[in-house]
Design a protein around this nucleic acid. Structure first.
Length: 284
RNA sequence: CGCGGGGUAGAGCAGUGGCAGCUCGCGAGGCUCAUAAUCUCGAGGUCGUUGGUUCGAAUCCAACCCCCGCAA
């Protein structure tokens, strides 16, 4: 609880909004940087990011500026510099932060990352933990440098996974656990009371960004039930475990739900009553 | 005008001009020590809406409403 600490928050998707709100509550958020508006949905309507939409209003009255630069170029950096922030906090922003931006805040740039670094650096740490069947993972708060998820770690917290955790549920858990950790560590960090632990480079592993094809499997040669279950949970709600059957996309959701292109999701048992030829008969 | 799938019984689906069907569920009963087992019987539908074509439309045509997948 220290309103003298001036923070700029970088984040884009809905699940980081609670983090932003916690920061606004405890510190002085002077700027919000989020991804540019995107065309979204069947109607292709230009829509601001979840962070832009949910940021507490009225921003202007609170002296908070909202930025959605296409690129973090010199022009954007100049604007950010004007905010005179102590600290930048980055959570799923979606763009690489260049050095000239990293150099702006007095106390550097802090990133939250949902794995126990140096394990699972990169874009899909949560999915990786689920796909690998890990029993535990965790959240890390680190100081960013120019290399990906490479900087020294301020704090970590271990989190256990259940065998029903999905990307979504685990992500929520991670956020819940991260918020108090973050709120607690920021003033200590500013006060210079936090040990910065360099990461052990030899233990580093990397995860790549998930794309649509990662969720695909061949219906003629499906993964083992265990593997499929992990895929369903790791890739929910996007891109989902999916296959092609009779020329149509069939998706699998947690809870033994199956959805064929154009149809609503149905329990696998119900689905099989309508499509008795479907090759996958159960999901256990 | 981004591309595409779909709306038929409570659920999942078949039916593409000639009496509205299948599987499951539901109700009653039989057989069972018993049963998510099994047998018999049964209820449950203005086939998304409106109009058109036709002797006759779930089915063909037109418009509209709603749900969904892709793409981003």
């Amino acid at each position: 609880m220290d309103k003298s600490i001036k923070i700029v928050f970088f984040g884009t998707p809905a699940f980081v909004v609670p983090i932003l709100e916690a920061l606004e509550e405890n510190f002085q958020v002077v700027g919000i940087v989020t991804g540019p508006d995107q065309k979204i949905g069947r109607k292709q309507i230009l829509t601001p990011s979840a962070v832009a939409t949910n940021a507490r209003r009225p921003l202007a009255a609170q002296g908070v500026t909202l930025h959605k630069p296409e690129r973090l170029d010199n022009e954007a950096a100049l604007e950010l510099k004007k905010l005179n922030a102590d600290l930048f906090i980055v959570a799923a922003y979606g763009k690489i932060i260049p050095q000239n931006v990293l150099d702006i805040p007095k106390f550097g740039v802090i990133n939250i990352h949902y794995s126990l670094l140096p394990k699972y650096r990169g874009a899909s740490p949560i999915q990786a933990a689920i796909l690998n069947g890990d029993k535990t993972s965790g959240t890390s708060i680190m100081q960013m440098d120019i290399k990906l998820d490479h900087g020294p770690v301020l704090a970590t917290k271990e989190i256990s996974l259940s065998n029903t955790d999905t990307f979504e549920s685990l992500n929520t858990k991670m956020t819940q656990e991260t918020i108090p950790l973050l709120v607690d560590i920021i003033p200590q960090f500013i006060a210079g009371k936090v040990d910065l632990k360099p990461q052990n480079e030899e233990e580093a592993t990397f995860t790549k960004i998930i794309n649509k094809e990662d969720g695909y499997f061949d219906i003629g040669n499906p993964p083992t039930p265990e593997k499929l279950d992990r895929m369903i949970r790791a890739y929910y709600p996007w891109p989902n475990a999916w296959t092609k059957w009779n020329g149509k996309i069939v998706k699998f959701f947690p809870g033994e739900l199956v959805q064929m292109e154009g149809k609503n999701p149905a329990k696998l048992a119900d689905f099989l009553r309508g499509y008795p030829d479907f090759p996958i008969k159960n999901l256990n």
